[in-house]
Simulated scan of single mutants.
Amino acid sequence: MSVKAALREQRIETPSWAYGNSGTRFKVFAQQGVPRTPFEKIDDAAEVHRCTGIAPTVALHIPWDKVEDYGELAGYARERGVELGTINANVFQDDDYRLGSVTHPDAAVRRKAIGHLLECVDIMDQTGSRDLKLWFADGLNYPGQDNLRARQDRLAEALRETYQRLGADQRMLLEYKLFEPAFYATDVPDWGTAYAHCLQLGDRAKVVIDTGHHAPGTNIEFIVSVLLRAGKLGAFDFNSRFYADDDLMAGAADPFQLFRIMHEIVLADALTPAAGIAFMLDQCHNIEPKIPAIIRSVLNVQEATAKALLVDAEALSAAQRDGDVLAANGALMDAYNTDVRPLLRELRAEQGLDPDPMAAYRRSGYAERIVQERVGGQAAGWGA
Rank of each mutant, 00 (worst) to 15 (best):
281 L>Q: 08
292 P>T: 10
288 E>P: 02
277 I>N: 03
268 A>C: 03
293 A>R: 06
235 A>F: 03
296 R>Q: 11
283 Q>Y: 02
288 E>D: 14
286 N>D: 15
283 Q>M: 12
264 E>R: 07
249 M>I: 09
245 D>E: 14
277 I>C: 04
248 L>Y: 05
251 G>N: 04
290 K>M: 11
238 F>P: 04
236 F>W: 07
237 D>M: 08
234 G>C: 08
262 M>P: 01
281 L>E: 06
272 T>I: 06
254 D>G: 07
284 C>T: 15
246 D>M: 03
242 F>V: 11
278 A>P: 03
264 E>M: 08
259 F>Q: 10
286 N>G: 14
239 N>I: 07
246 D>T: 14
260 R>H: 13
257 Q>H: 14
297 S>K: 00
267 L>D: 10
243 Y>I: 13
295 I>K: 05
232 K>L: 04
238 F>V: 12
229 R>M: 09
267 L>F: 06
269 D>R: 10
298 V>S: 04
247 D>E: 11
294 I>M: 10
245 D>F: 05
247 D>A: 07
253 A>G: 06
254 D>Y: 05
288 E>C: 13
273 P>D: 15
227 L>K: 02
252 A>S: 12
262 M>N: 12
241 R>V: 05
267 L>I: 11
294 I>D: 03
252 A>Q: 09
233 L>S: 04
